[in-house]
Amino acid sequence: MSKPILEVTNISLSRAQKLVVRDLSFSVSGGEILRLSGSNGSGKTTILRALAGLILPDNGKVARLEEKLGNITTSSNSVIYIAHRHGLEENLSPLENLNFLSQVCTPPPIRDGVSVLETLGLKTSMHVPTARLSAGQKQRISLARLLMFDAPLWLLDEPFTALDTSSKKQLESMIDAHLDRKGAVVLATHQRFNCKSHVLKHSLPMIP
C-alpha cells in the first residue's frame, strides 16, 4: 500500500477561541476523493485551511506526502487550495492575473495562462477587466490554478458555486482526470456532483 498523500491524525482546530473541530483523523491516498459535509459553521473551511498549511492545528498532526506541516511551508508543488474567495484583482484582466501568478510563484507553472483560459472557455474574455465578468466566469478563472500547476493534492472549497451546467461538467471531468493520475482531492461542498470514483465521505458534527 503506497503512502497516503494526506494523513491527518487527531487534529483539533479552533477559530477565535472557539473549538470548531475535535479529534479528527483521516487519510487520503492517490486516486481517492474525500468529501467533507456538514452544516454551516461545522469547520469545513477551517479544516481545508489547516490542510493547506495556513493554520496550525491545536494538537495532532497534518502530514502531506514527503513533508510534515510543522513549519508552515506552502508550495504549488504539493497542494493547490481553491478557497471560497476568487482571489482575482478586479482591475486587471484574467490573463494579467494569471501571468502575474506564473511569474512570481515557485515552482513555475506547467501551462501558460493563455492555454489554460482557452481550456476553461474564456478565450473571448481573456483581456477584459475581471470586474466586468460574471460570478461564474470568475469562479472558472479561480480554478485555473488546478490546470496551471501540478500538485498531487487538491483542496476545493465549494468549487461548484455559481458554475453553469457545462462548467460544472468540466470541473467534474478535471477532478476525474486528476484522480486517474493518482492525485487526491478533498472537497467541501453542499451540491451534488458526479464522480467516476467512489467518494469517501466525512460528515462533520457541529461542536456547541
Binding site: 508550495s75 504549488s76 482571489g87
Partner: peptide
C-alpha cells in the same frame, strides 16, 4: 492568500 499559497517569495 493565492499569492502566498502559490509559493511566491
Amino acid at each position: 492568500e493565492v499569492i502566498h499559497l502559490s509559493g511566491a517569495n
